[in-house]
């Protein structure tokens, strides 16, 4: 029975993809995409980026929450939590929309370009998939647990990954003393380098 699984996956994947592709109607979308090719130039000179770092930090940081918990009643705290979660979800959705639009513009711009590089396209698609996964994961977390709890969960996971990294470094130091140095160089504080 296990030999069936790859065939079932292929068959069902093709069926699902056909349905999605048929419903999306790319013919209608092309015109919209062509219209947004030019604004890409203008957007570069805009003072504030659509996915604002300051706004994101402000929404997720705990300063405002600390102030509200110290100075206000529980009713106001509840309202604050609800509003801040809605704001965070809206910020994440806005970012997702903006990056998806950038990817659509990219696809439309390069689809007729003979210099297109397969490896670059795959890397871009994977990076975009990572962004979508992160974004959707955060949206689900904020929806399920609220903003404060989400922040705590992320902090814990970051702490855990730092501990794991430290353990791996110790292990590598035992196996090969040159390895931890290399790991330090390749690790950029968890940030993804462009």
């Amino acid at each position: 029975m296990s030999q069936l699984i790859p065939y079932l996956c292929i068959g069902l994947l093709l069926l699902a993809l056909l349905a999605i592709w048929a419903l999306k109607n790319p013919g209608r979308r092309t015109k919209i995409v062509v219209e947004v090719l030019e604004p890409r130039k203008c957007r570069r000179s805009e003072p504030s980026t659509p996915l604002s770092r300051d706004l994101g930090e402000r929404i997720f940081r705990s300063h405002d929450w600390d102030f509200v918990t110290r100075k206000t009643s529980s009713d106001i705290q509840r309202i604050f939590r609800r509003e801040r979660a809605a704001l965070a979800i809206s910020w994440l959705r806005r970012g997702r929309r903006h990056v998806s639009q950038a990817m659509r513009e990219h696809a439309t711009a390069v689809r007729r370009n003979g210099d297109l590089q397969f490896a670059t396209e795959i890397r871009l698609a994977l990076r975009f998939a990572l962004f979508l996964a992160l974004c959707n994961f955060l949206i689900v977390l904020v929806r399920l647990h609220g903003l404060a709890h989400t922040r705590r969960l992320i902090e814990q996971s970051v702490l855990r990954s730092a501990r794991i990294r430290a353990t791996i470094e110790q292990l590598l130091a035992v196996v090969d003393p040159a390895k931890p140095e290399r790991l330090d160089k390749s690790y950029n504080g968890g940030a993804i380098r462009s």
Partner: peptide, 14 residues
């Protein structure tokens, strides 16, 4: 654009 968005997401979420 995508890398910056990922970085913002990571920084924003702590």
């Amino acid at each position: 654009i995508v890398s910056r968005a990922i970085t913002f997401l990571r920084m924003g979420s702590g």
